[in-house]
Amino acid sequence: MSSLFLPSGRVMLEALVLVLVAASAGLSLNYSMVMKAFSGRNVVAVPQAATQRAALQFPMPVDYEELDQLLAAGHLLVDARDPNIYADSHLAGAISLPLAEVDQLLAEFSARVPHDKPLILYCNGFGCPDSFDLGVRLIAEGYLQVQVYEGGLPEWRDRGRQLESGVTP
């Protein structure tokens, strides 16, 4: 029975040759990369990769002028403010995801809004960090297109646009 499992000497020798042949093929094809690595030089430019990753983790801003076009294209408005203030008045069509309660609400939100849905977050305008912080959370959760409307509710209101009251249906 053991002879079924143990390799013969010839098989072991052939295996060794196989490894040597493949390894030398790989080495000759990647000669410059390996030599660079062994001479202590960096093969990859690290800082560039790091900045690319940083850019991916933060939401990008969107201006009032771009807003209507994006909303027409199916972007979803998300209100990052307190739910009571949201109930008083919010941008037409916005749904509520308060930053303060994101830990409790994120699972439900995530189940309701697909991760490839483009989102536009807002709060109380310039100087309000909540929508940006919420954006970071949503990107970490796996949302692929998250933007922040920095003008927020004040700019929208001052432009004379429609506000709604009540809770999310």
Binding site: A22, A23, G26
Partner: peptide, 22 residues
């Protein structure tokens, strides 16, 4: 160690490839 990661990366795929082809 640092440089040996590149040695593995240069050779291992070809060993896998050759075994697969055989």
């Amino acid at each position: 160690p640092y440089a040996f990661n590149y040695l593995v990366a240069a050779t291992l795929p070809f060993v896998e490839l050759l075994c697969g082809v055989l």
